[in-house]
Nucleic acid binder design. Sequence first.
DNA 1: TAACTGTACTAATATTAATAATACAGTTGA
DNA 2: TCAACTGTATTATTAATATTAGTACAGTTA
Lengths: 122, 122
Amino acid sequence: MIVIDYRDRRPIYEQIVERFQELILKNVLEPDSQLPSVRSLAMDLSINPNTIQRAYVELERQGYIYSVQGKGSFVSENERLVLKKKEEILDEAVKLAKVAREFGMKKEEFIRVIIDEFGEVS
Amino acid sequence: MIVIDYRDRRPIYEQIVERFQELILKNVLEPDSQLPSVRSLAMDLSINPNTIQRAYVELERQGYIYSVQGKGSFVSENERLVLKKKEEILDEAVKLAKVAREFGMKKEEFIRVIIDEFGEVS
DNA sequence: TAACTGTACTAATATTAATAATACAGTTGA
DNA sequence: TCAACTGTATTATTAATATTAGTACAGTTA
């Protein structure tokens, strides 16, 4: 479920956070389902439990999960999170379009590859 | 010309590399014009000359500049670099579009913000 | 009550960016 | 010629931070 890329320069806990965000936003992990425990996931990934803990703290801070002492960590409802994520994607798209324009790229040239990705038929 | 952002988590030399890439690609620095010397730029930015050296080595490796011992470092011809940069931007756009689609975003919704950025008239 | 859970804390280690201090070689202009 | 610039190279040290290690405590569950 979680894979660590040691060539990735970002810290491990950040990779874990991002991966769970993805799984939660895509509903692979359903609301209220339980995440692996701090210790068991650390075992699976052969890393320190503290690193997992740090990732879970961050996920909780961002609203992706909630933790109950003695019971475990669970996936939050994600409707609001999906909306937030979509906004972030749009923000990135705007930034990228701005850069493209600054480098003299034509609107058609830029949009063409996007339409291709989405598929021609709307 | 160059500004260091200490809140940026990326290393200083990487910020410098990126900034010069931008200045060169946008033709703010013209081909064959001379870059500030390793030592003088280090003085200006109040950082160590080795950090600048590292940035210049990287810029030379990527083809953005060429260095001549005893003379200085100079901007390369940039036509090829601009093409490469445009390809990179398009690659990013495709990746982002893919993510947007994965999160169930509508094509129109995604393209709308881009069109707005470029301006309605083509 | 044993075996799980999360949570908290301190200390040690590893990695890497950045600094510091030199040294050497080539260029330039007075 | 030579002082004052350039780039280049090397080694050592410092600083910052991610990660590990170890331990402890509190709540839950079968």
